[in-house]
Amino acid sequence: MMPVDRIGMTDTISAPDTRSTWRAELRGILMLALAVIGFHSLIARPFYIASGSMMPELLTGDRLVVSKYPYGWSYASVSFDVLPALRGRLFGRLPTRGDIVILTPPDPARRSETLIKRVIGLPGDTVQMVRGRLWLNGRPVATEDRGLQRIVDNGNAPCPGEVTDGICRVHMMRETLPNGASYTTMDLGQSRLDDTVAYRVPAGHIYVMGDNRDNSADSRVATDEGGLGGAVPVESIGGRAEFATFSLNGNATWNPLGWLAGFRWDRTGDSLRPVIRS
């Protein structure tokens, strides 16, 4: 066999195509971002409590998990304000009385806001407040007076009730809706929200209230006063509050080293679904 003449033959090693590498990395980042947005919009998202309208169930500084799928999906399910206010819900289902939901106000000027309230009335229900007590469909809701109860450390805001021996106590009531959903509300005394006219919830709408009944801009409050001006369309619902992940009181600062002192250990993992009484 004659030897192969390799004179003039060279092995060429191609340099990596940096443009292809950058495209692959950019594609990976984009896919990750889309996956996060999809999860937030379709499955669950975190939520921060910035006000006291849902006390005593929720305190300022609580961090929650909100599920997106229990009632189907609508424009309000999307984590970013990118869709128009389309009518209806995909695989839509009505919430249950007593559920805590996040919602987008139907006023176009407030599309950037996300509120959290409790569902009180469903389509066809008649809702009214009479001397500070909730009436539903012409009957008073079962209510138990719990008297003065202690509120856990809430450095985010001053005590809304009485302070004795350095402990904040607030008058509490326990409401039980006709479906058995039971939860605690705060009664801070006489207020203009204690008496309302009877309101019939239209079809395709829900009536919501805050548990802090004397200090909540909800369905009882006019839109020009920052409220919802009545029942809200079901497509305004963005999801259902499920449980608290952790909570920091107002003593916590931006420095993570100081979070330990402001951590509310007793609120971690608390379920936000109403208790069902038989």
Results as ranks from 00 to 15, higher is better:
Thr114Pro: 01
Val65His: 14
Asn251Lys: 10
Ala198Glu: 13
Ile37Tyr: 06
Gly8Met: 07
Ala33Ser: 08
Gly230Ser: 11
Leu86Ile: 13
Pro105Gly: 05
Val221Phe: 06
Pro3Gly: 08
Asp17Pro: 12
Glu113Gly: 09
Ala109Leu: 07
Glu144Asp: 07
Gly124Phe: 10
Ala50Leu: 12
Arg213Gly: 05
Ala261Leu: 10
Gly189Pro: 06
Val130Glu: 08
Tyr75Met: 03
Asn137Ala: 05
Leu228Ile: 03
Asp125Ile: 13
Val221His: 03
Ala222Ser: 05
Leu148Trp: 15
Glu235Lys: 07
Arg169Ile: 11
Arg110Thr: 11
Asp99Cys: 02
Ser41Asp: 10
Tyr207Ala: 07
Arg27Met: 09
Leu257Val: 15
Phe263Arg: 04
Arg97Tyr: 05
Asp224Gln: 11
Gly250Leu: 02
Ala231Cys: 12
Leu34Ile: 05
Gly180Gln: 03
Ala109Asp: 09
Val78Leu: 08
Ser247Cys: 01
Trp73Arg: 06
Pro56Ala: 02
Val232Gly: 02
Thr12Gln: 06
Ser41Trp: 15
Arg150Phe: 12
Asp145Gln: 09
Thr196Cys: 09
Ala222Thr: 08
Ala44Glu: 03
Gly229Thr: 15
Met172Asp: 01
Ser67Ile: 00
Ala203Phe: 10
Arg133Glu: 09
Leu59Gly: 05
Ser77Thr: 12
Ile120His: 00
Val221Ala: 05
Ile276Gly: 00
Ala15Lys: 11
Pro202Lys: 03
Met186Arg: 05
Trp22Gly: 12
Thr245Tyr: 01
Pro256Thr: 14
Ser53Trp: 01
Arg267Phe: 08
Thr164Trp: 14
Pro158Ser: 11
Gly155Lys: 07
Thr253Asn: 14
Pro202Thr: 12
Tyr207Thr: 09
Ile116Leu: 02
Leu34Asp: 06
Phe91Ala: 07
His171Asn: 07
Asp62Val: 00
Val221Cys: 09
Leu257Ala: 15
Leu136Asn: 09
Ile167Leu: 08
Phe263Val: 12
Leu59Glu: 02
Ser247Lys: 00
Ala241Val: 01
Pro233His: 12
Gly138Thr: 15
Thr114Cys: 02
Leu177Ala: 04
Gly61Gln: 04
Tyr69Pro: 02
Glu175Met: 13
Arg118Gln: 04
Asp99Tyr: 03
Pro274Gly: 01
Leu64Val: 11
Gln149Ile: 02
Trp259Phe: 13
Thr21Asn: 14
Val197Asn: 09
Pro70Glu: 01
Asp270Pro: 04
Glu144Arg: 12
Trp73Phe: 13
Gly138Asn: 07
Trp22Pro: 00
Ile116Tyr: 00
Val36Thr: 13
Glu235Asn: 14
Arg27Val: 10
Glu25Ala: 15
Asp214Arg: 14
Pro140Ser: 13
Val201Trp: 00
Asp195Arg: 05
Asn251Trp: 05
Asn212Arg: 03
Ala50Phe: 04
Leu177Arg: 03
Asp218Tyr: 01
Val101Thr: 00
Leu42His: 12
Pro233Glu: 04
Ser51Thr: 11
Leu58Val: 00
Arg110Phe: 04
Asp194Arg: 13
Met172Lys: 01
Gly227Asp: 06
Ala217His: 13
Ile49Asn: 03
Ala203Gly: 08
Leu260Lys: 14
Ile206Met: 02
Ile116Gln: 00
Met129Pro: 08
His205Lys: 15
Arg111Phe: 09
Lys68Gln: 10
Ala50Gly: 14
Val275Gly: 04
Ile120Trp: 00
Gly52Tyr: 11
Leu59Pro: 02
Thr185Gln: 05
Val66Ser: 00
Gly52Asp: 10
Arg27Ala: 06
Met31Gln: 11
Gly28Thr: 12
